[in-house]
């Protein structure tokens, strides 16, 4: 008996070791460019761009960060994006979780065709111009709704949630709920959702991150500086000097414009990496917080009971 259990233990160990070693190297490879961003954010831009920076910072300085900290636009962008992320994600979840549940009922009339119609929109869309006209006519321009409502539901996500419902929620549970006299809505709220924590957490993450990174809709619909999302503010800062160059070049290049150009392009280069760190950090911290909902063990007790 003893020898048997020892053998089992050993086999488990080797597998674990190999697993961890591979994962470790994998992590190193992934981590290096991240490390690079970190050291580049405190190095002199010319050193970074000439390839001198690869293991240590060169000409270390915190200029990038100090400019970021002092920039009112960036802080405003943070606020807008944070509000957008929270509000947007709540709306997304409300729509997705309910819609996906309804779409699992393929035996009901109209469900299959509706599924097809929804999926159809993943491929065919009227394009930018009509959507812009629609948003405009609904009076949503320069409001936060223009950033939330178009694209409020991703069919891709609905499909994922629906798949999860179908494969992870046993039919016996649903039947039991019906027998207990639960209506569909009650079943969804009391039975399905509590068991769906992993997928809900995942969707919150997907949608949340989508909102955090979003800039195209702001680019199209927002002209009010106070409503710029973080990503838009950042892009304005980073690409500013590129556009400026072309324009100033044409401006007959009198000395005054050259001097300004030099300031601006320097600033953009200094900021480039610091800005990534500042805008990415919050998101990186969110996942560990959500992770406990993605841990196994949720199903224990549900079937046995």
């Amino acid at each position: 008996m003893q020898r048997e259990s020892n053998k089992r233990k050993k086999r488990v160990e080797v597998f674990d070791v190999v697993n961890i070693v591979i994962l470790f190297f994998f992590t190193l490879v992934i981590a290096y460019p991240l490390y690079f961003v970190l050291i580049a954010s405190v190095s002199a831009p010319t050193a970074v761009n000439s390839g001198q920076v690869w293991l240590w910072p060169v000409n270390a300085n915190f200029n990038g960060y100090s400019i970021v900290m002092q920039s009112a636009e960036i802080w405003r962008g943070y606020l807008v994006t944070a509000a957008l992320t929270v509000l947007g994600t709540l709306i997304n979840l409300a729509l997705t979780l309910t819609g996906a549940y309804a779409l699992t009922k393929t035996h009901l009339p109209g469900i299959r065709p509706i599924m097809f119609l929804f999926t159809f929109t993943m491929f065919f869309s009227g394009g930018l111009i009509p959507t812009y006209l629609l948003v405009s006519s609904l009076g949503m321009r320069d409001t936060i709704w223009a950033l939330i409502l178009p694209g409020a539901v991703s069919m891709y996500n609905i499909i994922l949630v629906r798949t999860f419902y179908r494969s992870s929620i046993p039919n016996e549970l649903l039947d039991a709920a019906v027998i207990d006299g639960c209506s569909e809505i009650k079943t969804l709220l009391r039975v399905v959702l509590p068991l769906s924590k992993p997928i809900v957490a995942t969707m919150a993450l997907f949608y949340g991150v989508g909102h955090w990174n979003q800039y195209f809709q702001a680019l199209i619909y927002i002209r009010d500086k106070n409503l710029y999302t973080l990503q838009l503010v950042i892009r304005n800062l980073l690409l500013e000097s590129k556009n400026l160059l072309n324009n100033l070049v044409q401006a007959g290049g009198m000395g005054m414009s050259q001097e300004y150009l030099s300031e601006v392009s320097q600033r953009a280069e200094t900021l480039k990496y610091a800005v990534i760190v500042v805008s990415t950090l919050p998101v990186l911290l969110v996942y560990p917080l959500l992770q406990k909902h993605l841990v196994r063990g949720i199903m224990i007790g549900s079937l046995k009971g």
Partner: peptide
């Protein structure tokens, strides 16, 4: 439960489809 989604897709996806 499906209604909000239907409204969304009709308005924001099929609405502009004439484009």
């Amino acid at each position: 439960l499906l209604l909000p989604c239907i409204i969304y897709f009709a308005l924001f996806c099929y609405g502009p489809m004439y484009g």
